[in-house]
Amino acid sequence: MIVDLADLRYAWKNGARPLIDIPRLTAEVGERVLLWGPSGSGKSTLLGLLGGVLAAQHGRLRLLGQDLARMRGVQRDRFRADYIGVIFQLFNLVPYLSVVENVTLPCRFSRHRKARALHRSSSLEREAIRWLTALELSDREVLEKPVAELSVGQQQRVAAARALIGAPALVLADEPTSALDADLKEAFLGLLLAECAREGTTLLFVSHDHSLLPQFDRGVDFAALNRAQAQPPRDPAPQRRIA
C-alpha cells in the first residue's frame, strides 16, 4: 500500500477544531484516485500532510510503509524529495530556471531520484526532454523560452514532467487542470493519467470537478470522508462546472 492513513486529525491552529479528521484513506500501488470536494474543505491541507510539509497532530500516516507522523521535519523533507512529486493548480515553475532546469529540479534535492533518472537516460537533461516529449512538449522553441512566457497549459505539462521525473512512488496533484479550458484539460489529464499508468505511479488528484471521475480508477468524496466537515451545514457545493 502506498498511502495508508488512519484516524488522521489536523488543525491549522493547535487546539482549534480540526479541519481534517479522516478515519481511513488508502491507495494501492499504481492506483489513480480522484479526490473531489468543495472549496475550503481542506483538500490542499490534506495534500500538505501527505507531502510531509505539514505534520498531523494526531493519527497514523503511512506512505510506502513508513510512518510520516513519526518522522522529524528534515526526514519528512527528505522523504518528499525522494518519493513524492507535486503539481499545483498554478504557478508551478521557478521563474529564473529554464524549462529543463525546472523539470530536473527534484534531482537537485534527491540523490535517489537523480539516480533513477540517470538509470533511464544518459543525462538529466535528456531525461527531462524525454518526459517533456512524452507530455507532447518537445518543441525546441518552447524549451528555450523563459518559463514565464509559456502558456498555462505548457506550464502545467512542465510541472507534470517535474513531478514524474526520477519515478517517485506517489504524485500529488492539486487541481492542476482548473486553470485550463475544456480541451486542454482533457488532453492534459489524458497525458498525466497515461504516464502514471505506464510508470505504475500512484496518483492522488484533487479537484472540485466531479465530472473527471470516469477517467480515474477510483473516486473519493472528500466531504463524506472528512468527519470534520460532516457536522456543519454544507451549502450545496459551488460547482465550477461551466463546461
Binding site: 507531502g51 510539509v53 521535519g73 528534515v74 523533507d77 527528505r78 518528499r80 524529495a81 525522494d82 507535486v86 499545483f88 504557478f91 508551478n92 515553475l93 521557478v94 521563474p95 529540479l105 527534484p106 537537485r108 534535492f109 534527491s110 517535474r162
Partner: peptide
C-alpha cells in the same frame, strides 16, 4: 518560489 522548492524537497532551513 519557496513553496515550489518545498514541494520538490527543500526544507524550511534550506
Amino acid at each position: 518560489e519557496m513553496a515550489i522548492l518545498r514541494s520538490v524537497g527543500a526544507g524550511p532551513l534550506h
